[in-house]
Write a protein that binds this DNA or RNA. Structure first.
Lengths: 333, 333
DNA sequence: TTGCATGAATTAAGCGCTTTCATCCTACGG
DNA sequence: CCGTAGGATGAAAGCGCTTAATTCATGCAA
């Protein structure tokens, strides 16, 4: 079904049909309705490829995430998508599984699609990629990684601050043996969080003991990391997790060792995904405003439509502590 | 960056470059490497729109789901995507939020993309849509809805059978007051599950009491539905949920009423999403082989690559009971 | 009546690629 | 040494659409 057949049926030129489809330029009402009728009757759907090829511009945004399974990323995607749809855009997602190589191939795929913009919400990075993207003309917004440039905006969260708040809160509750459960050692932004944990710990030097463990993202990874941690003989009274999704698995393993939460061990997450509220006990965590991040991303990619924030800027987002029932006073030693 | 610039730099025609890029037709080795060098140096990425427009065929599959947030759908997507990637295809997801209207617009969007195939994994349906899709030439695979046709395959799960197994199992444990928590009344396949519950209940007529409640998909919906259910004064000893994702919220609400699981109330889910294992207590559920479904979908859409199953057929999948710790003997009356 | 704005519709030139068909070598048998 | 098969290339015709530039009506002032 092509423009031409619609044109023939409505007895006009294809240019006219194109105009009514796109709702641009002057078209007499009688002609318009004749064309619309033909479109309906023939069930015409414009070929998006021909359209973007001819028009040179696309109404599609791309988004690359590290792990779509982690609700954190999904939430950002949904917020971005909702803004996008409101303005007639579509969003394409791609997943990297935290692998830099896959990130590169995702980006190349995206470049081939001549997108209107690309949101890169990942923890891994490939140095050459940053340069390649900077050189391109694609509007880009990075979350967590990258540096601002002519066509690149950055959204950053003060992760360290969140971790710091968590640690201080736990310290106040009397915890002196803490552990950090992370994932994917070697990824910069994730290291930041661990580093922040370690530094805050050093602030309490002499006073506290601590340890760290890591495994892949997700409940299964959290469980595995916890198993390793506890196997070392270290007995933390509080476990700080790099994100909520892992914390779900951490809690399970802690319980399987016969500890109660928060009676024996306090557990904290990070992100405040909606599941954290439905965990048992509900998880103390750090809220990252994912919805806001999605909106900011859209605004950065399509500045003429999204409200505020010019392209090429750096945007900071503040995390905030959410206290629920997975944390409590440290058991007296 | 276009084919032409690569051609100029490698001092060949664009036809030759195209041949190298697509790895078709005879090209002298020396020429090939010259072209490949030029491609690398210029960071050329083919324009996918021009490509599918000219070639007339696409290497993109579409997938429409009801609620990407529910891990059930995400798992199917990931399985499909993994097969797709292995064969050089991409997958586009779209979400309907269980709304038939959104389903229609998703389908139209997909049609405009001239996909290689479309997987429709939704619970809602629009009768005219089925016909429109049947008339189109797009290879399609439906999950749970629709009827087979020339270009349409169907994957169906014997949901009723799963529900039946759950109910019988609970009955064996002595449960005589059961409730069904569903979602989105009015959607056919979901009604099936509820109907199956009601029919099995009738099998125990006189012997058992039962009730039903419903709210939107997800933990929050499960919680809300449970609140309503318990507000009626009905005191079930077992709650059967339409899926695991809702069961997460159901358990929370049950506990907030001071009941223990499974001591006072047994809870079951459906789907066996990976989170069900990390719930507390781990959820008794019915396994739906989502990975297998994803693979079947790919095989149905691209029969020449996927192993087995011709297009236009109907495929049945068997659910199976998974007993964990959220169910136990009914408390003595 | 003629002329000229103005609005409505058409013509035609690409967008960047694939693919057929024609062309050009090169090497080999006669 | 020539003819020619066949591999390697190039030229050119679209794919279905957008968008100038252009033509064609129409109405109104002069």
């Amino acid at each position: 079904m092509r423009l031409e057949e619609v044109a023939k049926r409505a007895k006009v030129s294809i240019a006219t049909v194109s105009r009514v489809v796109n709702n641009v330029g002057p078209v007499k009402n009688s002609t318009r309705s004749r064309v619309e009728k033909a479109i309906r009757e023939l069930k015409y759907h414009p070929n998006i490829h021909a359209r973007t090829l001819a028009g040179g511009k696309s109404k599609t945004l791309g988004m690359i995430v590290s792990n779509l399974e982690n609700p954190f990323f999904l939430d950002i995607f949904r917020a971005l998508e909702s803004d996008a749809h409101r303005h007639g855009y579509e969003v394409l997602v791609a997943n990297t599984d935290y692998k830099a190589r896959q990130l590169v191939s995702c980006v190349h795929l995206m470049m081939g699609r001549r997108l209107a913009g690309l949101a890169v919400v990942v923890s891994e990075m490939e140095p050459t990629l940053i340069q390649e993207l900077t050189e391109s003309n694609l509007p880009i917004v990075f979350y967590d990684v990258g540096t601002p440039a002519r066509n690149i905006s950055n959204i950053k969260v003060k992760y360290e601050k969140g971790i710091q708040k968590v640690v201080e809160y736990l310290h106040t509750l009397g915890h002196r043996r803490m552990a950090f459960i992370g994932h994917h050692v070697g990824l910069d932004p994730l290291m930041d969080r661990k580093r922040s944990f370690l530094e805050t710990m050093k602030g309490y030097a002499g006073e506290v003991e601590y340890a760290t463990a890591a495994d892949r993202d997700g409940p299964a990874g959290g469980q595995q990391a916890t198993r390793q941690l506890l196997a070392t003989g270290f007995k933390p009274t509080a476990i700080i997790c790099v994100n909520d999704y892992m914390a779900l698995g951490v809690m399970k393993e802690v319980r399987e060792h016969g500890y109660s939460i928060p009676g024996d061990v306090s557990v904290t997450g990070y992100d405040n995904i909606s599941l954290s509220e439905f965990a048992h006990p509900p998880l103390t965590t750090v809220n990252i405003p994912r919805e806001k991040i999605g909106h900011l991303a859209f605004a950065a990619l399509v500045p003429e439509l999204g409200d505020g924030h010019a392209r090429g800027s750096e945007i900071l987002v503040e995390p905030e502590l959410v206290i629920r029932e997975s944390t409590g006073r440290a058991r007296a030693v």
